[in-house]
């Protein structure tokens, strides 16, 4: 594959890959490094491209692997800076409402972060990145049924934790 073909076929995915990496790592600088490393890996394996059914799913898979390697190698912990979620307070919110919302967001984030990795990834890909079941299956190299099972378990677990939040009056 030539340089120009690579740039026209692969580089358009960069925004999507960056969003995906950012949500996995929660850090702009690391997300950028991961996308760069993923592109280098894609380039080094470009001879496989003609055999692939979905270049996008392949790029996403490589990005995910690079991000997971980074998480493992550095004993990385996703920073609990979900403060970002509350950094831009709504004009309609009082300081008290804003603080309360930040706290709730932090708890939702923690509930998702506690999920097993395969559940968390499916939930992120579906509910945050907006991928279809088929795209998720292609990316993770699993069947559609497994995607739905993992997503169902992820949502169910998160739901139970949200119910606990309400039952114990945290919100």
């Amino acid at each position: 594959m030539t340089s120009s073909a690579f740039q026209s076929l692969i580089l358009p995915f960069r925004q999507k890959l960056y969003c995906f990496a950012f949500r996995l790592l929660g850090n702009e600088e690391d997300a950028k490094d991961v996308v760069q490393d993923a592109f280098i890996r894609v380039w080094n394996n470009r001879e496989k491209m003609p055999e692939l059914q979905s270049l996008e799913a392949w790029c996403m898979r490589i990005t995910r692997n690079v991000a997971l390697d980074r998480l493992k190698s550095r004993k990385y912990r996703i920073t609990d800076d979900l403060d970002r979620a509350g950094e831009v307070p709504s004009v309609h919110q009082s300081p008290h409402q804003h603080a309360e919302k930040s706290d709730v967001m932090r708890r939702v984030h923690a509930a998702i972060a506690r999920l097993p990795e395969k559940y968390r990834t499916v939930l992120q890909l579906r509910d945050m990145d907006g991928l279809s079941y088929q795209e998720i299956a292609d990316m993770l190299e699993i069947g559609l049924a497994e995607v739905k099972i993992n997503l169902h378990r992820a949502r169910k677990t998160v739901r139970e934790q949200l119910q606990n939040l309400q039952v114990y009056g945290i919100q």
Binding site: Y18, R23, I112, M128, L162
Partner: peptide, 15 residues
């Protein structure tokens, strides 16, 4: 019940 979750998804959409 689902409001915090969807609020979280909405906040996370800001990349």
């Amino acid at each position: 019940e689902a409001a915090p979750l969807f609020q979280y998804f909405n906040d996370c959409s800001a990349v």
